[in-house]
């Protein structure tokens, strides 16, 4: 059994590594199919002489063959292998749009900002969504259930930017919350408490937007999962034994009902690094979503490749973790 799981884990890790490599290669070529010359970005200026465009292309290495060098000399002297070589050294290259910025700096800053926003939202929505789903299932068929279900469905289907704008107007106009940014810029705080309050005030609206949208999904899955479990025979047996409903749920139903939620949480966490594009845009949050959008507009291939690599790695990693957790929770998985 133990060697079986080790083999299972090894196989999954190798598979994940291959997936990441394929994604890296796919992205590299995908972006180069986009029309336009990345050396000049979206910029068309007649004063950019052919010599200067050539100089820019030279700087970015865009004059080399894309995949393999068929023009004589070393086959591997191409943009693709140069990219792979640099990547192996952890070098993501230099941004085309922010011409003096290494991609790793840009991504690092944006990643921190995104996690700052998304993590609290995830925690709140998981706790609240799971709790609400459980409660609704427990009170299945009552007005409470119908109310919670309707609320979740509405939140889940609302366009994020719309909810964001509505909350922005309510929060900014009626509650006096800030409209943008992560902190009050240039503020000097008397105490750490003041600083925390300032951060919380800025986080409130974007976090609430994101949490409300995510909450609906967690609630719906949790509720249906608990309802399923509650109709199982062993629950009926527990009832027949005369256990109280709360004891049945906490001891017998909850663990089994949590399985789909584990999957959902891991997948959502994996996608965290893609940033919450719409929330980031509404609340001017300088995260990964925003960086990716601007990179697409400016044909900033190195930043796009870096962002997609980050996304691929985290999604693959999240899947890997789920599968390994599952192999523990349910040994049948690793034997399949």
């Amino acid at each position: 059994m133990r060697t079986g799981r080790r083999r299972f884990v090894t196989r999954k890790v190798v598979f994940a590594a291959v997936t990441v490599f394929v994604v890296v290669t796919f992205n590299f070529f995908l972006f180069r199919v986009l029309p336009g010359d990345p050396a000049v970005g979206g910029l068309r200026d007649p004063r950019l002489s052919p010599e200067r465009v050539a100089a820019l292309q030279e700087r970015f290495g865009l004059n080399d063959p894309v995949f393999v060098n068929l023009e004589g000399g070393n086959l591997l002297e191409s943009q693709y292998f140069a990219y792979l070589g640099a990547l192996a050294h952890g070098d993501l290259g230099t941004s085309y749009a922010f011409r003096d910025q290494p991609v790793s700096n840009l991504l690092g800053t944006a990643l921190v900002n995104t996690v700052w926003l998304v993590l609290p939202a995830q925690v709140i929505s998981i706790v609240a969504g799971v709790g609400l789903g459980l409660f609704a299932a427990y009170r299945r068929g009552t007005k409470v259930d119908v109310g919670a279900l309707s609320f979740s469905l509405i939140m889940w289907s609302l366009p994020t930017f719309f909810l964001g704008i509505v909350l922005l107007f309510i929060g900014a106009n009626w509650v006096g919350l800030p409209t943008a940014g992560r902190v009050t810029i240039g503020a000097l705080y008397d105490t750490t408490w003041d600083q925390l309050v300032d951060i919380a005030r800025h986080l409130l609206l974007p976090t609430a937007t994101l949490a409300l949208v995510l909450l609906g999904e967690y609630m719906l899955i949790m509720r249906s999962s608990v309802v399923d479990v509650l109709s199982e025979d062993y629950i009926l047996t527990a009832k027949a034994e005369g256990l109280s409903t709360s004891r049945i749920i906490s001891r017998h139903a909850l663990r089994n009902a949590l399985l789909p939620i584990v999957t959902l949480i891991a997948l959502n966490l994996g996608f965290t690094v893609s940033g919450a594009i719409q929330v980031e845009t509404v609340f001017s949050w300088p995260g990964l979503g925003q960086l990716t959008v601007s990179a697409v507009n400016q044909r900033d291939f190195p930043v796009l490749q870096g962002a997609f690599l980050l996304l691929a790695i985290s999604v693959v990693l999240a899947n890997l973790v789920v599968e390994i957790i599952y192999s523990w929770l349910d040994p049948r998985v690793s034997e399949a």
Binding site: I165, L168, F169, A172, N173, G176, P178, T179, A180, G181, I185, G186, T281, V282, F283, S284, P286, Q290
Partner: peptide, 22 residues
């Protein structure tokens, strides 16, 4: 003493920020 430029991407949020005195 100081000038601060703050990025407020969303045009409606920018207008609100001005009206609220942000």
């Amino acid at each position: 003493d100081e000038v601060i430029f703050q990025t407020i991407e969303n045009p409606d949020a920018r207008v609100t920020a001005l009206r609220n005195g942000d």
